[in-house]
């Protein structure tokens, strides 16, 4: 798992120690480019923690570049061996307004790491949320494990596939695990 401290990337991008706010579209684009370069340097299938802990605030334009465009690039990727997954850490109320806005604008969702574990946020329907939460709870799941929660094997398979395409679940040979649920799955 790769960990990217956004405040460090920000300081490198701006070549300035003074700024801790993710503001302006050019800054966001530069930070995203840096994140993409770091991911490209890593393993082909990757899980990356995007850490907001030391970021003061983020504005809409920067959130569009750093969060929305980053997710958009990878949710549309076809090749499983190049799949990139993201877990967002340290997101507070000071960041959420801008992030929520861009997720809504683009119909995106992401996984937030919280004190209590992880949760899915953004644009998901009830079925997707139920599916993700069940997989997270189980640690590792197949469609047959979710029939009771989702109504039928087809519905469960469809929901799992959809969440995997959105890079909110990772597909393994024997089922799916939730992004943010790796600890439980490996435990």
């Amino acid at each position: 798992m790769m960990h990217i401290d956004l405040s460090s990337v920000l300081r490198q991008t701006l070549s300035c120690e003074l700024y801790s706010n993710l503001v302006t579209r050019p800054t966001g684009a530069a930070v995203r480019t840096q994140i993409e370069a770091l991911i490209a340097d890593g393993r082909e299938r990757s899980l990356t923690v995007i850490d907001f802990s030391h970021v003061g605030m983020i504005d809409f334009s920067c959130a569009d570049e750093v969060v929305a465009k980053l997710l958009l690039r990878y949710v549309s990727a076809e090749r499983e061996d190049l799949a990139a997954y993201f877990l967002f850490r340290g997101v507070t109320d000071d960041h959420w307004d801008a992030i929520e806005t861009v997720l809504e604008r683009h119909g995106l969702a992401l996984v937030l790491e919280t004190d209590d574990g992880a949760r899915i946020v953004g644009m998901v329907n009830d079925g997707e949320r139920t599916c993700w939460e069940k997989v997270y709870e189980l640690g590792r799941a197949r469609a047959s494990d979710l029939v009771l929660a989702l109504g039928s094997l087809d519905d469960a398979a469809r929901a799992l596939d959809g969440l995997h395409r959105r890079r909110l679940l990772m597909r393994l040979d024997d089922g799916y695990i939730a992004v943010g649920g790796l600890g439980e799955a490996h435990g």
């Binding site: 706010n21 503001v23 302006t24 579209r25 605030m57 504005d59 809409f60 334009s61 109320d93 000071d94 307004d97 801008a98």
Partner: peptide, 15 residues
């Protein structure tokens, strides 16, 4: 808490 929104507003208008 409105401070963040205020700073965001300022940032967006300046941009």
């Amino acid at each position: 808490k409105a401070t963040v929104g205020f700073a965001m507003t300022l940032s967006e208008i300046c941009q």
